[in-house]
Design a protein around this nucleic acid. Structure first.
Lengths: 336, 336
DNA sequence: CTGAAAGCGCTTACAG
DNA sequence: CTGAAAGCGCTTACAG
């Protein structure tokens, strides 16, 4: 049989309440503390989190919700979040919300009912409606890299707008005038921001890209390749391209390698998101990578703060700088 | 306030026990059934799984353990498993075991204490010791694609040995004589089996590969590229290569594209594992892909069977055929 | 088939 | 600081 708090009470001669207090870091006489610790060690007692959860109506596990686990970069954020949570005595579980049809409802039911004391939702993984219901049930939610329509939650986002601007500036600095944009789902907040920063900056420099240079809602490697191929086969192709997200960056890098475009020279480009795979394909790609460690750490801090302090501290909307790897895939344009 | 079983009892005039019976699919008079259903719908009652778990000592959630979520292909198995479980009324959570140092202990404590009624462990995600402890606590475990030293668990594996043989046969059929193997961690059960099948078949054909053609324990894209480069720069390079796992396949494909080796002709190859990315890099790669749908489905069936029937049905060790995409990266060798 | 009562392992006021 | 008692929401024998 598993040892319970009752066993520890009997073993030490103390009451259940005292053991419980010890477990919850409330004041206990030093001598009793010692007794309890010895007993716990001897009997290998581990608190039953289910019972704790039932009674106290809160558990020590938080759910990390990702949209899906295939073809997405978000796996990279799991580890940093787990590490942060662990250091604070919390456990994490990973759930996916968008990989199955209608799964979000099942997920919601699971999240309610005290299975979980907080939620970190990444990149549109939860609808605004779901977040509302969680909030109504006093389960704090922190969103990473998106701002749900229901804005009553803390958020942590990368400085995507800013990095969009920097990408544009980089091209401008290298004298590019004909610039192109390829990106995924424009409903994605991060893609929106990157795009806006890029285009705003170009506009200010009087360099609005032609419409045939801009492709959005690219949702597969294959269509990324197609889009790039099409743009490069225009009569007057652009000299620089920004890829707004992971899947597009990857597909286009593959296309660049395949079509044996010599970089640098014929085409300059900047990738949003990054993976070791990029380096395997093309050395020294200029890329902008989100700071997963910091995103995760900040999200966890916010969440735990909400869980511990129920007081109404004003909502936080943090920005975390991404990392601009200014390598060598952007070079001076060769003037005709 | 959330509605509880007590609310339903009051609302219907029935006892707690009767409601509970209804919820657990035990016989209830049709008229009462109707009353209960109406009441549940009206009051939006959803059973509290924490309380159910505490009392019955079993929950309806199972844990899917992956070694990690970065640089691994196992994200692909999450979705099929979630779908299967959902159809049986179970919920799944994904946990990673190897991404953090010493995380496995924390994970074990979480899995015990009735948070979870069963575990699916993929590809060495749990040590034999951990599996033992779970078994001692009557939490059934099913392993996918590995056989732990503690063999008291059901397993579902791809037919890796068989596919290793088929890969070799494919080269032999195309008259290759100088064959090479590049693979990852040889402690991995699937890599071991693939390797063994491949080498056994070559041996039977009198085609034992030279030792300088065989590289194992390759653990990064970069070292995969290095290994391939080295092998191809030998005085007499092999005419065919098998890549034993995802990371190696990917790294080597990148290297092949980069070094502009013209396929087919100069080099034939077969990849174990597959991803749309492969096609983006090189069209029509001959690849062997595990059947994630079937692996997941079988694992879930076994697990639920163990959860429901406590009787000692003999241990099951199932094999699931992988899919051999016999495309065109293996061609007849050009005789000198 | 139904219901009253006990109990899962823990936490929480409430006295002392 | 400590302890007795009640209770979290549900399930489980046990009578009827």
């Amino acid at each position: 049989m598993k040892t319970t708090i009752t066993d520890i009470a009997k073993d030490t001669g103390l009451s259940l309440a005292t053991i419980s207090k010890y477990l919850n870091h409330k004041p206990v006489l030093p001598e009793n503390m010692k007794k309890i610790e010895e007993s716990i060690a001897r009997l290998h007692y581990v608190p039953n989190q289910v019972a704790q959860g039932l009674r106290s109506k809160k558990t020590k596990t938080i759910a990390l919700i990702l949209p899906a686990l295939e073809n997405c970069l978000w796996g990279k954020i799991v580890n940093p979040i787990e590490i942060s949570l662990k250091s604070l005595g919390f456990m994490s579980i990973v759930c996916t919300s968008k990989s199955n049809e209608k799964y979000e409802t099942t997920l919601l039911n699971f999240l309610l009912h005290n299975q979980v004391c907080g939620v970190i939702a990444v990149d549109h993984s939860l609808d605004s409606e779901t977040i509302c219901i969680l909030a109504d049930n006093e389960i704090p939610v922190v969103c990473i890299d998106y701002i749900p329509e229901y804005i009553g939650v803390d958020t942590v986002c990368s400085d995507n707008y800013q990095k969009g601007c920097e990408a544009a500036q980089s091209f401008i600095r290298h004298k590019h005038q004909d610039l192109s944009v390829i990106g995924g789902d424009v409903n994605s907040y991060s893609i929106q921001q990157r795009k806006k920063g890029f285009l705003d900056t170009l506009k200010n420099a009087g360099l609005i890209p032609r419409s045939e240079y801009c492709v959005y809602n690219v949702d597969s490697l294959e269509s990324a390749q197609e889009s790039l191929k099409k743009i490069l086969s225009l009569e007057k192709p652009p000299t620089g391209i920004v890829f707004l997200n992971y899947l597009v960056s990857l597909g286009c890098l593959a296309e660049i390698v395949n079509s044996q475009i010599t970089v640098p020279g014929r085409l300059s480009f900047i990738c949003f998101d990054h993976d070791t795979l990029f380096d395997a394909l093309i050395p020294n790609v200029t890329a902008i990578e989100e700071n997963y460690e910091l995103l995760g750490k900040k999200a966890v801090e916010l969440l735990i703060m909400r869980i511990r302090e129920k007081d109404e501290k004003p909502l936080q909307h943090l920005h975390v700088p991404s990392i601009f790897y200014d390598k060598s895939s952007v070079v001076d344009v060769i003037m005709p």
